[in-house]
Design a protein around this nucleic acid. Structure first.
Lengths: 214, 214
DNA sequence: ATGCTGTTCAATGTCGACAATCGACGCGGA
DNA sequence: TCCGCGTCGATTGTCGACATTGAACAGCAT
């Protein structure tokens, strides 16, 4: 039984995540401290604490003396965010690519196959879950805390803001091709290629989402 | 006359920056809200707001229910931070390298010469200032807001935590060589080279500082 | 001497109220 | 009609006080 010491601030953060994931909060919406406080039966103090954390993670824009808003990202900002993610994760994976054992490469290939299978069945939930496992294994070798902090923040932000597109972005064939490409680059041992492939993957994902968001 | 709307929170942030730059605050020190509030003649509310901003910029570590502390970075963490900076800025510069005009390249070379000159005279202050100008010009072409946000944060953090070493890191000859190397890579137009040179520069800087910090 | 336990105190977590400020609205004049 | 200005309401900024929690210390048992 995990004893979870949960402070009000953390509850507020989770609450806002839920609101975003359930679509009750969308781009441009304002998060009013008093309203949130009343809804949750607490004071504004922990709300403000939570806002700072959300701002830190890029899920809330802060305008002094005005309020906190769910960010409205322009197409360019979407692409830039994914580009940045590609830069960070591309490096993280490139720098550790020779640490993958044969078993782990097998695992990556299995996950790719599973993802294609789920995609065929239009089981988007499992596609996303399997994709997450694939992704986590890829960057799991890196231990640069500073870099991981930034990638985690960015992943969380993009995941929550654009999760609704995850299922519709790529055809099953494309999903397979893209992930195979990454695995193949790792098997090749060509570090430059690995970094390039990862960067391109995220850049294209960003571009696709940007077009869908207009 | 610039009308600067300065809130208490911003004053607190600046105050802590000053304490850090003046050496009155160092790694491991705790920032006690009540104490800061009393010193500045304000309540704890804006102090807490400021803490969040400092945490966001990596200049303060937050331990729930315990307090806020100036981070103590291990040698590896120092190297990792500089490595990450190299990854981000290396990409930023590489992606925009063909946008530099001949005049701007000249400017970079002039700044390099000036830096060497100041270094010879042991004018560390001007070395740092000129180096900052060099650096700012290099990344000025990039307009990826997400990436710039991360690089700015990281630059600020590393600048404030390690500013004391800036003058003593490299010999005048090394300073010249390093910056010429970067300018040359830009003149060559070899994107891979540019990124590699920038990454290596920051990695080596991090390594040097890490050894000095022990 | 060592390790556990309860107490104490200082620091953070939370609260409700008041002050300062921004944005919207409506009025009046060109 | 359009633009500038002042008022007003709603929201954030700040405050002092109280509640809660973590860490250090003393005392006891082993």
């Amino acid at each position: 039984m995990p004893i979870v010491k949960t402070t009000y601030k953390d509850q507020v953060v989770d609450h806002v995540y839920q609101l975003l994931l359930q679509g009750e909060l969308g781009p441009g919406d304002q998060l009013k401290e008093s309203l949130l406080a009343k809804q949750m039966g607490i004071s504004r103090a922990p709300i403000r604490e939570a806002m700072k954390e959300l701002i830190m993670n890029g899920l809330v824009d802060y305008r002094p003396q005005v309020g906190n808003f769910i960010p409205v990202l322009s197409p360019k900002q979407i692409i830039d965010s994914y580009t940045t993610r590609g830069v960070l994760e591309g490096y993280a994976i490139m720098a550790t690519c020779e640490q993958f054992s044969a078993e782990e490469v097998d695992k990556l290939e299995n996950l790719t196959a599973q993802m294609g299978s789920y995609a065929e069945k239009k089981n988007h939930k499992m596609v996303v879950e399997t994709g997450g496992e694939f992704h986590d294994l890829l960057i799991s070798k890196n231990d640069n805390v500073q870099l991981l902090e930034y990638t985690d923040r960015l992943s969380l932000k993009l995941h929550i803001l654009f999760f609704k597109y995850w299922g519709k972005l790529y055809s099953p064939a494309e999903i397979g091709r893209r992930h195979r490409e990454i695995v193949d680059s790792i098997k090749s041992g060509d570090r430059n290629l690995i970094e390039k492939v990862v960067r391109q993957h995220y850049h294209e994902t960003g571009s696709k989402i940007a077009t869908l968001e207009i």
